[in-house]
Design a binder for these strands. Structure first.
Length: 198
DNA sequence: CACTAGATGCTCT
DNA sequence: GAGCATCTAGTGA
């Protein structure tokens, strides 16, 4: 697909599978996206935007194609591509990827982790890319150092889906999408706070 | 390999 | 102060 900001204006759960295969870049380090999760704002109790705008999540209420970053579990940043029309909150969490450029830098930032684990998991991915607070709200299509680039398209037949990792609300909604068979995908873990599986 | 416990600090109530 | 869209190091098989 031709990756453009206006293609991200659809509902998050429809945009998410289209992001697989795209490339998220920060200067020399680039990651091919292998796993994403959709968060549908006001329609989705698991979304940070479910209860309306706050200083943290206001980026998600703006135009699509911007970067929503949040800090999690005391040590990790997680990166989302804002989806949905301007004024409606939504986003896709970039959970995992394969480093396709800047391998040496990524390895340093990840303190010599195995290649497979350089960007497998949302916290590891932002660490490999060197993304944190100063990149909040970046327009990924403005030609800056942090941007979303076209990659090799993943055919719909190769997209697997299932419930999202670690969410206590809407724990059975299958809005996690990944490249079927890829080794660069994180393990599924149900939230211990979620009600028992169906 | 699978599984578990604990660290850690920001955000909102 | 509770709750987290997590990670790592540790154990045991």
């Amino acid at each position: 697909m031709v990756l453009r900001a206006d293609l991200l204006a659809g509902p998050a759960e429809r945009v998410a599978p289209l992001l697989l295969g795209a490339v998220l870049r920060h200067d020399e380090v680039a990651v091919e996206v292998t796993e994403v999760e959709a968060y549908a704002g006001p329609r989705d109790p698991a979304s940070h935007a479910f209860r309306g705008p706050t200083p943290r999540n206001e980026v998600m209420f703006g135009p699509p194609g911007h970067l929503y970053l949040y800090f999690s579990y005391g040590m990790h940043w997680a990166a989302n591509v804002v989806c949905g029309p301007d004024g409606t909150a939504g986003g896709c969490l970039v959970r995992s990827g394969r480093v396709v450029d800047g391998l040496e830098i990524a390895r340093e930032r990840r303190h010599g982790a195995p290649e497979r684990d350089l960007a497998r998991g949302p916290g590891r991915l932002t660490q490999a890319l060197g993304l944190s607070r100063e990149h909040r709200g970046t327009d990924l299509f403005a030609g800056g150092p942090v941007r979303l680039e076209e990659g090799e398209e993943v055919p719909a037949a190769d997209v697997a889906r299932g419930p999202r990792v670690g969410v206590s609300q809407a724990a059975d909604v299958p809005w996690r999408f990944w490249v079927a068979g890829s080794r660069y995908v994180s393990a599924y873990k149900r939230s211990p706070r979620a009600p028992a599986a169906l």
